[in-house]
């Protein structure tokens, strides 16, 4: 009987400790930081994929350090919007920047790509036909301080 009591006691202690540890874990993950599930990009062709058509429309140039859609580049933007409307293709907007900080260049290039995306949405192109990427200081093929267009032919994987 005494043996049984000890066994039951140890099981109870184990349950308490187990419950406590899971409680602590829950409070760190759930109650403390309250992280939410990270989204994942669909598996799509990248800007450098062979089927992506680059250089068909001139890229949008930006002044050093700027990321707002430049008014002087509106004609190029409309040319890209017209191409997308006519062909029904999708587009990868590839941003770049010449900043000396590699990380600043990456995120400045990304912000520029997002600015061009918003401007294209305002021109009537649905956002789900566009994807953005930034190469920062390392734009393939050179260049920098611009957003280039990579058109994805219809029939390729959707974004």
């Amino acid at each position: 009987m005494r043996y049984l009591f000890y066994r039951v006691s140890w099981v109870a202690v184990g349950l308490c400790v187990g419950g406590l540890s899971s409680c602590v874990k829950w409070s760190r993950e759930g109650g403390g930081d309250r992280l939410s599930e990270a989204p994942r990009r669909a598996n799509v062709a990248g800007y450098l994929a062979p089927q992506v058509k680059r250089g068909k429309v001139a890229g949008i140039g930006f002044a050093a350090g700027a990321w707002e859609m430049p008014k002087g580049e509106r004609l190029k933007l409309r040319a890209a919007a017209t191409y997308l409307k006519v062909t029904g293709e999708r587009v990868i907007l590839a941003g770049s920047a010449k900043e000396s900080s590699a990380e600043y260049a990456r995120q400045l290039g990304q912000q520029r790509a997002l600015a061009v995306q918003q401007a294209l949405v305002a021109e009537g192109i649905p956002a789900n036909r566009m994807a953005t990427v930034s190469f920062g200081r390392d734009m393939p093929g050179g260049g920098g301080d611009e957003v280039q267009f990579g058109f994805v032919p219809t029939g390729e994987k959707a974004f």
Partner: peptide, 17 residues
């Protein structure tokens, strides 16, 4: 693990590093 995230900043500008 990368499975969970939380946004820390909310601004129109570029936040990095």
């Amino acid at each position: 693990s990368g499975s969970r995230v939380r946004r820390l900043t909310h601004a129109r500008s570029v936040e990095f590093s």
